[in-house]
């Protein structure tokens, strides 16, 4: 094999204090037949600390997937550098600590659930009794008991996503990249995946995931970055970004009568709030919350996993 000369663009002693760190990370794709260059990612600076759940947001083609590919060493940066726990992303050491779930995975349609996990386990050097134990754990974790002996081509989309998560976790990585983990999955499955992400966070894992469904991100992410046209447009913690500093909301478990409303209004006016700015509303459930409540009331009629055909 031919020895590859590595040309370092920046200082290689990057701080391992970050699970993910990118500095000026840039990716250009040349379209040779059009003599044009597409700028897929433009000088991205990103720092994700261990234990964080980080959401990458943005419309399709805004650079989320490119970022993940660069962080996994699947694509080669045109400029800048990425580091995973201080290591270059294409090094085996870095990838031993990383799990990845691609967007809409299909996997090997003719392998069963167990065989799939066994295969990925072997790739990570997990073997023997340790591997079998790990498979048991993961099947439990993602709830795929009924998919163990079935070939993946009979899986539903949600099951594929869950086996995908299981394979990403097979070698117990510290850092997980999930590309659109809930795309095409029904709301129940998608909420299970959300729960799973939160459980992983509790286990101390760092999770980086991309999504274009904002509500989901809101529920699990500590921090987000919003991408637009290959550029990071905004980054920060949800706490800080989503709170409207100019208003306060008071939640009560009971409905207020008109009379009670008037008395509260007077109290607030006395406290110095302008009367015209006070509004009384009743909180709305999101349709998703309503749906999940309905489904969870009748768990027997809708088992969480898919029945055998």
């Amino acid at each position: 094999m031919v020895a590859l000369m590595k040309i370092s663009v920046m200082d290689t002693s990057a701080s391992p204090a970050f699970a993910v760190e990118t500095i000026g990370l840039t990716k250009r794709y040349p379209l040779s037949w059009k003599r044009k260059i597409v700028l897929a990612l433009d000088h991205l600076d990103l720092q994700i600390r261990p234990g964080e759940v980080f959401g990458l947001l943005g419309p399709n083609g805004s650079g989320k997937s490119t970022t993940l590919k660069l962080l996994l060493g699947l694509a080669i940066p045109s400029e800048g550098e990425a580091r995973i726990f201080g290591l270059p992303p294409d090094s085996l050491e870095a990838r031993a600590r990383v799990g990845f779930l691609p967007e809409n995975p299909y996997f090997y349609a003719f392998l069963t659930g167990d065989e799939t996990l066994r295969f990925y386990g072997k790739l990570c050097g997990v073997t023997g009794a340790k591997l079998e134990k790990r498979i048991e754990e993961l099947i439990d974790l993602v709830g795929l008991q009924n998919g163990r002996e079935r070939p993946l081509r009979s899986y539903s989309k949600g099951m594929l996503q869950r086996i995908g998560l299981a394979q990403a976790l097979i070698h117990d990585p510290d850092l997980l990249f999930l590309d659109e983990p809930t795309a095409g999955v029904d709301p129940l499955g998608s909420s299970q995946i959300r729960d799973l992400i939160l459980r992983l966070k509790k286990m101390g894992k760092t999770v980086v995931f991309s999504s274009h469904l904002l509500e989901q991100v809101q529920e699990v992410a500590d921090r987000v970055a919003i991408f637009s046209l290959g550029k990071k447009a905004l980054e920060g913690s949800l706490e800080a970004m989503l709170v409207e500093n100019q208003s306060t909301q008071i939640n009560l478990p009971a409905e207020l009568s008109a009379e009670q409303q008037e008395r509260v209004r007077q109290l607030l006016v006395q406290a110095g709030v302008g009367a015209a700015e006070i509004r009384f509303t009743r909180p709305h459930l999101s349709l998703e919350q309503l749906y999940l409540r309905t489904i969870q009331k009748a768990p027997d009629a809708n088992p969480p996993t898919h029945p055998r055909p």
Partner: peptide, 10 residues
């Protein structure tokens, strides 16, 4: 593109 890299490397 990146002119700092030598031709053979590109």
């Amino acid at each position: 593109m990146n002119t700092t890299l030598p031709l053979w490397f590109r």
